[in-house]
Nucleic acid binder design. Structure first.
Length: 425
RNA sequence: GCGAGCAUAGCUCAACCCGGUCAGAGCACUUGACUGUGGAUCAAGGGGUUGCGGGUUCAAAUCCCGCUGCUCGCCCCA
């Protein structure tokens, strides 16, 4: 039997409401902050990700789904979306849209990783980007506020917000040299991974969780103490803005970002309810990315949020299936069956959710099924009803029944406040 | 790429340690008790080559080896 491929999964009807809740809440909240939805292709030229995310990162070096199409183009399924959004910003000359363009996206992304809790090969991200000439720290603070508001509205508890600054192209290289100098003496006493990172990505050493390495890392110089004046001022301003907005945060001096394009503001939101992969959202500034991709100078900040992880942190009762039928039609006999189809069609056109069984069954079974499906009403069409030209409508909650003409039935259902036609649609 | 654990009915699991008792329960599904009226109860039924392949043995779901898959952790990241 052919099954879903490793690291992918079906989202079955019972789970879909939870997904929709996340998506719809994102659209609602982000819209309030002036962010507009953008949908970029699911695959792009490989070069886009190689250049932006970084050739040496794990994502590009060993996690992308890369293939050559029939025309010989080297393409990759998107491992993230910031690169695509910035590409779109450049391609569509969005700087003419205004000084800061605010965009958000949501959808599947792909990385060839070893699956584990909260980590899959096809995974979903919700993210937003603010791109333009302006790099006011208030933009950073507003974006963070928006993420917090979103998580609040979903009821995601036990969260923590960490912020840091990773500097810019002026101050970071000097700091990295500083860091390497400071660690060179104790390099042999660090874990294997850190020895490797020392060469490939020294900043990552700050992120190491190995117990024995901690004393050395604690003593190493911190990025925050080596920012250039402009970056330091930017970070201080961000802190002030967050405080003015009443957003609780912790400065995580060792927080770094995995992708090469990040500058200055870096932040991460974790949830204690998650497990080993406890980062629920992460983001930061990427002021050089547009130019790196051949576009005009532009500043940018964004974040991405892992939907599968968010789902793990979401309260149990966050969403319920809302596809229970308004009306279950129980018919008895062939003539009643045709009548049932006709009535169902009329009510469905009016927006009601109407269900019936295609198979002849005993009335008892039909009622049991209506109950199981949580139908609000049941409509009985049998010999008596056909003869009288009136139907029996049963309120499944109270058990009360009334006999109604078709017109009275339609009027009755259409004015019922709790049904689909007048309510949620 | 590395490490550990698990794999029995559609789902949740029992039997595995100390091989032999037709491979079982609950939920779900179908039917009946109940001639046109649901949630309860009782009964019956369908459904499994015990992940796959090999080995040991008179005998393997049970012990051994290989493979595959899944889960969790490392790495990395959202």
């Amino acid at each position: 039997m052919i099954q879903t491929v490793r690291g992918t999964f079906d989202i079955l009807p019972d789970e879909v409401p939870r997904w929709r809740l996340l998506e719809e809440t994102a659209r609602t909240v982000f819209r309030c902050y002036g962010y507009r939805e953008i949908r970029t292709p699911i695959f792009e030229r490989t070069a886009l990700f190689a250049r932006s995310v970084g050739e040496e990162t794990d994502i590009v070096a060993k996690e992308m789904y890369t293939f050559t199409d029939r025309g010989g183009e080297c393409l990759s399924l998107r491992p993230e979306s910031t690169a695509s959004v910035v590409r779109a910003y450049i391609q569509h000359r969005m700087w003419t849209w205004g000084s800061v363009v605010k965009l958000f996206y949501l959808g599947p992304h792909f990385r060839y990783e070893r699956p584990q809790k909260g980590r899959f090969r096809q995974f979903h991200q919700i993210g937003a980007e603010a791109i333009g000439q302006n790099d006011d720290p208030a933009i950073d603070a507003e974006l963070i506020e928006m993420v917090e508001e979103y998580l609040d509205r979903l009821g995601v508890a036990e969260r923590e917000l960490f912020i840091n600054s990773v500097g810019c192209s002026r101050c970071r290289p000097a700091y990295v040299r500083h860091l390497k100098d400071a660690l060179s003496g104790v390099l042999s006493r660090l874990c294997e991974d850190c020895q490797r990172r020392y060469e490939t990505n020294p900043l990552r050493i700050l992120d190491c969780k190995v117990e024995d390495d901690q004393p050395f890392i604690e003593r190493a110089p911190a990025l925050l103490d080596h920012l250039c004046e402009a970056c330091a001022a930017h970070f201080e301003a961000l802190r002030r803005h967050l405080e003015e907005r009443g957003i609780a945060y912790q400065v995580a001096r060792r927080l770094v970002r995995g992708l090469d394009y990040y500058t200055r503001t870096a932040f991460e939101i974790t949830s204690a309810r998650l497990g080993a992969q406890n980062a629920i959202a992460g983001g930061g500034r990427y002021d050089g990315l547009s130019e790196l991709l051949g576009g005009p100078p532009a500043k940018g900040i964004g974040f991405a949020l892992g939907v599968e992880r968010l789902l793990l942190a979401l309260p149990e009762d966050a969403a319920v299936t809302d596809d229970a039928p308004d009306l279950y039609i129980a018919y008895l006999g062939e003539a009643a069956r045709q009548e049932a189809f006709r009535v169902a069609r009329r009510l469905r056109r009016a927006g009601l959710v109407v269900i019936y069984d295609f198979q002849e069954r005993k009335l008892r079974r039909l009622m049991a099924q209506a109950d199981r499906m949580k139908a609000r009403y049941a409509l009985l069409i049998g010999e008596d009803e056909l003869a009288a030209g009136r139907y029996t409508l049963r309120d499944m909650r109270t058990g009360e029944q009334e006999v109604l003409s078709e017109e009275a039935l339609v009027r009755r259902l259409m004015t019922s406040r709790e049904l689909s036609a007048s309510g949620r649609r």
